[in-house]
């Protein structure tokens, strides 16, 4: 099991690389990340997404562009789960258990099987939010501008207590 885009998300982003910009490659993990961050933002899971095959090779680590931030991604997953499940942040054992459940330092992505499953479900929900907010992007620059608007425009619904 690895990180996977939903079928709809793959198709949504499919027009983007028909107009490439020199020196900039928009990766599959960039698409996944766009969705994932929105899923984390609202701490919401999609119920039963139909997923594409994994975009990373089996046993692969995060691509270079994301490697400096891998601990952020793990932290954000734990943080989102704490919010989603409304765990008491002062309960040391609960936080600890949650971390053990989601992370596996010996796996290439640092995630347990459960952790990967949650990542995919957060990303799937994030895509639903993304699709509601913008049209399928035709270029990377257009997408980035629209995506930045998305983060600025909507004031955040405070779901659960912040960790």
């Amino acid at each position: 099991m690895s990180l996977r885009l939903t079928e709809d998300a793959a198709s949504f982003f499919s027009k983007i690389d028909s107009q490439p910009i020199k020196g900039v490659r928009f990766l599959d993990i960039d698409k996944f990340y766009a969705c994932l961050m929105l899923g984390f933002r609202y701490a919401q899971l999609a119920s039963d997404p139909s997923l594409m095959p994994a975009f990373l090779a089996a046993g692969a680590k995060y691509p270079d562009a994301y490697q400096p931030y891998d601990s952020y991604l793990l932290g954000l997953l734990v943080e989102a789960e704490i919010r989603r499940r409304n765990l008491d942040p002062k309960n040391r054992d609960l936080i600890e258990q949650e971390t053990v459940k989601l992370l596996d330092p010996h796996s290439p992505l640092g995630l347990s099987e459960d952790g990967i499953r949650f990542m995919n479900r957060y990303a799937a929900k994030g895509f639903e939010i993304l699709r509601d907010a913008m049209a399928p992007p035709r270029s990377v620059d257009d997408f980035l501008v629209a995506y930045a608007d998305l983060w600025q425009a909507k004031s955040e619904p405070d779901s659960g207590q912040p960790a």
Binding site: M37, R41, Y66, Y69, L76, E79, I82, L144, W151, P162
Partner: peptide, 19 residues
């Protein structure tokens, strides 16, 4: 800047700080 969660949005940055 997009690929770094801490610079993507202040919201995310504060979430990380809170954690």
């Amino acid at each position: 800047a997009y690929r770094n969660p801490a610079t993507l949005s202040p919201t995310i940055r504060s979430r990380l700080t809170n954690l």
